[in-house]
Every structure is written in structure tokens, then in C-alpha cells.
């Protein structure tokens, strides 16, 4: 999943901050539960769970990011 985010074009990476949580850790599990996620892997944008149990196609991920970008 992190690879999908790392593979984003630079102009998209420039407008986002990426945090990766490790589900093997207490912190990662806590964040997973806060987001009310159910499956892995999951991507949240602006604290909202957007993709779950799927690695989204790059164009879907870019569209979801752009839909939230107000800058």
C-alpha cells in the first residue's frame, strides 16, 4: 500500500502528507480502530476511510486526493 502512495506523481506528492501505520504496533491498531476500518490494506484521506481491502488504481487515488484538495 505504501508503494502505491510512493508511486504517485510528484505534483500529487507535493500537496499531501503521508503517514503510514504499522498494524503490528499498538499505535497502528489504535489508528485503525479510530478510523473504524475493518480490512487491510486501508487508505484514509483527511481522516476519512476512502479505500479499504484494496490497493486502488493510481487514477482513482489521484481523483480522491484532488476531490479533497482545496489549495
Amino acid at each position: 500500500m505504501a508503494e502505491a502512495v510512493k508511486a504517485l506523481p510528484q505534483e500529487i506528492r507535493d500537496i499531501i502528507e503521508v503517514h503510514e501505520w504499522d498494524m503490528r504496533t499498538r499505535e497502528g491498531i489504535k489508528r485503525f480502530l479510530e478510523l473504524k476500518a475493518k480490512s487491510l490494506p486501508s487508505i484514509a484521506l483527511d481522516n476519512e476511510l476512502v479505500f479499504e481491502a484494496v490497493i486502488p488504481p493510481q487514477e482513482d487515488l489521484i481523483a480522491a486526493i484532488k476531490a479533497r484538495y482545496t489549495g
Partner: peptide, 13 residues
């Protein structure tokens, strides 16, 4: 039980 899919995925490790 809502997190069972994630738990199942993690059992691989």
C-alpha cells in the same frame, strides 16, 4: 467481529 477481515489478514504473519 467487524475487524475479523483485518484479523484474518494479519494471521498470515
Amino acid at each position: 467481529e467487524s475487524v475479523y477481515p483485518a484479523l484474518e489478514a494479519m494471521t498470515g504473519q
